[in-house]
Design a protein around this nucleic acid. Structure first.
Ligand SMILES: [Mn+2]
Ligand SMILES: [Mn+2]
Length: 280
RNA sequence: ACAU
DNA sequence: CGATGT
């Protein structure tokens, strides 16, 4: 199979209104948690066709199947045959062509969804109505008050961090207490930054177990995500080795339920004490 | 965009 | 400025 690379990503922010992205991360970040339709394609026409062809407004959360094998933003979805617009509670207008639905929707802020059957579309509206209404009005504003507040600098626990010379490059990790005292250190050979962060977390857990520590800090959103989800994206280097670390860490955390792996908020608290101090 |  | 990742 020839690899057709997606070059363009379109997001339908409002009926008929497309936002264009030329890279997947930007598109993904924008669409995250929102009910927008989106699709990728070799060119804009292909992406648009996919959206119009009935790519369902799936939650950008995660596509559980085939994600690791692919590298494609869109996958085989059944074609939508019905498009419902919720005019009033429990009253729907039905369309059989997306373009008609789109015209009707123009300038309105009504919940809508497509589905292979009317029942499916109706159910989808039910599931996504809140988010649709919430985001429909809010496009101009960038400020959303989300996420737990970040408190003050922690005083409890231990931390790990990675250091590299080039990325990928010769790398190392260290585990420290919150005053910066080194508790463990290792050279790792040539790997990526995220590989080293992950290796450091595993070492940090071992240290925590032997020392009776329970709060474990890392600044790596990526490593934390791998551990929590148990899954890697299609672009990850050394995926087999990474997954060995991931499963090992998951097993350790399961075996020691008292351990808490937490995100170190560098912006608020300054560099994590295990940092190698090479950025400046 | 976010985290490195 | 470059790279690793969601
Ligand atoms: Mn780090
Ligand atoms: Mn660091």
């Amino acid at each position: 199979m020839a690899k057709k690379k997606n070059n363009v990503y379109l997001v339908e922010t409002a009926p008929g209104q497309m936002k264009k992205f030329t890279n997947w991360p930007d598109c993904q970040a924008f669409v995250k948690g929102k009910p927008y339709r989106f699709a990728g394609g070799v060119d804009e026409a292909e992406a648009r066709a996919k959206i119009s062809g009935g790519a369902p407004a799936k939650q950008a959360k995660s596509s559980k199947g085939g994600w690791s094998g692919g590298g494609k933003a869109t996958s085989d979805k059944p074609k939508n045959n019905y498009y419902l617009v919720e005019i009033e509670p429990d009253q729907y207008k039905t369309f059989t062509r997306w373009s008609d639905c789109q015209s009707f929707l123009k300038g309105k802020k009504l919940p809508y969804a497509g589905g292979v059957t009317e029942e499916e579309a109706k159910a989808k509206i039910e599931r996504t109505r809140d988010m649709q209404l919430k985001y429909r009005d809010r496009e101009p504003q960038g400020g959303g008050k989300k996420g737990a507040a970040v408190g003050s600098r922690p005083s409890e626990g231990i931390c790990s961090d990675a250091g590299t010379h080039g990325n990928p490059g010769p790398c190392e990790y260290q585990v420290c207490d919150l005053k910066g005292k080194r508790l463990a250190y290792k050279h790792l050979g040539v790997h990526t930054n995220n590989y080293a962060e992950l290796a450091g977390i595993e070492a940090m857990i071992e240290v925590a177990v032997t020392r009776g520590e329970t709060i474990l800090w890392t600044d790596s959103q990526i490593a934390m995500g791998w551990i929590k989800s148990g899954r890697l994206g299609p672009t990850v280097k050394e995926p087999e080795a990474i997954m060995v670390f991931v499963r090992s860490i998951q097993a350790l955390l399961k075996k020691h339920p008292n351990l808490e792996l937490k995100k170190w908020h560098t912006k608020q608290w300054g560099e994590i004490p295990a940092d190698f101090g090479r950025k400046g």
